[in-house]
Design a protein around this nucleic acid. Structure first.
Lengths: 235, 235
DNA sequence: ATTTTTAACTTGTAAATACAAGTTATTTTA
DNA sequence: TAAAATAACTTGTATTTACAAGTTAAAAAT
């Protein structure tokens, strides 16, 4: 079992409390001193946990007053270290596998530069469609470095988090990442999948996720129809 | 003169070093112990400064190895606490005032809910166009709470940062914020300003910036042509 | 010359302590 | 009763100390 630090335990508990709705927007979390008592830790440890909640936009702090819970889940949280499955927390959504994971060559003119010697000469590719309330909202193509990934192509990812699967079966953890964000006009293919008119404006994210494995990345190309679900960013 | 803490001084110096190009991508910053010696501060103070650089994507850390400089300025940094002027750092850009700051009523159906009693019954509005290398890239409409803002409408903001002006003359500091991100098809008005075809896909950001003043916000509606300059996000 | 072991670095986690500065509640004064 | 002053809370900043865990360099062994 992977070792988890005290501040990470506290961070997760507080985050879950917020996500579950135990606080309303504007409410104060317990004070730093109260959290020290409740969890038998010291103030720097509490502050480390709170700092992460602040960085992720769950909370903001006001000197002399407290840690104020910010609004949640009014938009999709795609702009974070979490995968698209986590971005839908609190929403009724479905994830459909359009193309099962299969081994392919890296596409030509890939949206990130690939070091095929260090990474792999080919990759595992899969395509998914995310649906909220009968609306196809996100179309996502994922490319994974094909290194030490036995039997991955047999994994069933329907309605499951790719990141959690990588972690559970392969001990691969996402540690950070980068993305390029653009607006594009839907071509025939993407328009059909997202059930919008050709030329409709879509958000396109080109994501590169770093992992705890050396030279091992997860790349995603995400098309998002933002008509009914905008992307939310807190900072 | 406003008091600035030790970790903030260190953070700014390191950040400037990175932005100026004193490091290449992949380079290591001086170690935490080295920074302690150089700046005569203790390790928690150094770590606080580094933590902010990590949060903003300038640096990532690897246990046992060091603080690794990440790539910079390959995209516009609009997804952060900084204003759009800061997003252009390292680029040759111009900021043109299309509509001088003037006092107007809050628009109907404003993209954020306004509490006119707590905020103000009207606001200061201005419109700017940002240009990189002869390309109109960003069109921005800004709405500022009209409270204790004497002579703001006479300020010259051409090629200047709004946030820095607010800070210098009104002691107003941006402390955080939120934004909704959508892709929209350009209408006639915006298409003309950004010099693109009607229907072209644009990024639209609806931003609400929090400040150190109670019930005082800065709202922006940002249209961005991402054809040549994508938005970059590190996380 | 190569491999293994050890040393010396690095960041990560955590506690203890102290004071500054902001907000709110309570007490005192007019 | 209202205003001012004070107390008690809050977060912000900073130091000191210690050990865990990862990476790299140097030394020792083969």
């Amino acid at each position: 079992m992977e070792k988890i630090s005290l501040y990470q335990i506290l961070y997760q508990k507080l985050r879950e409390s917020i996500i579950k709705g135990e606080y309303n927007e504007g409410d104060l979390l317990p004070s730093e001193n109260e959290l020290c008592s409740q969890y038998q830790v010291t103030r720097p440890t509490v502050r480390q946990a709170l700092s992460q909640l602040v960085n992720e936009g769950y909370v903001r702090k006001q000197q002399g007053k407290g840690s104020i819970v910010q609004q949640l889940n009014k938009g999709l949280k795609l702009l974070s270290i979490e995968g698209t499955t986590a971005a839908f927390e609190g929403e009724k959504f479905y994830s459909k596998i359009l193309v099962q994971p299969s081994i392919v060559d890296w596409p030509q003119d890939f949206f990130y530069a690939i070091n095929t010697q260090a990474e792999s000469t080919n990759c595992i590719m899969l395509e998914r469609l995310r649906t909220i309330e009968s609306r196809n909202v996100i179309y996502e193509k994922t490319y994974i470095t094909n290194k030490q990934m036995p039997r991955f192509t047999q994994k069933n990812l329907e309605d499951k988090s790719l990141f959690e699967t990588l972690k559970k079966y392969y001990q691969i953890q996402i540690t950070g990442g980068e993305q390029k964000i653009r607006a594009i006009n839907a071509d025939k293919h993407v328009a059909k999948l997202l059930q919008v008119l050709i030329g409709k404006s879509l958000l396109m994210l080109q994501r590169k996720m770093y992992t705890n494995r050396k030279d091992f990345f997860v790349y995603s190309l995400v098309y998002c129809d933002t008509e009914h679900y905008y992307i939310q960013d807190l900072f």
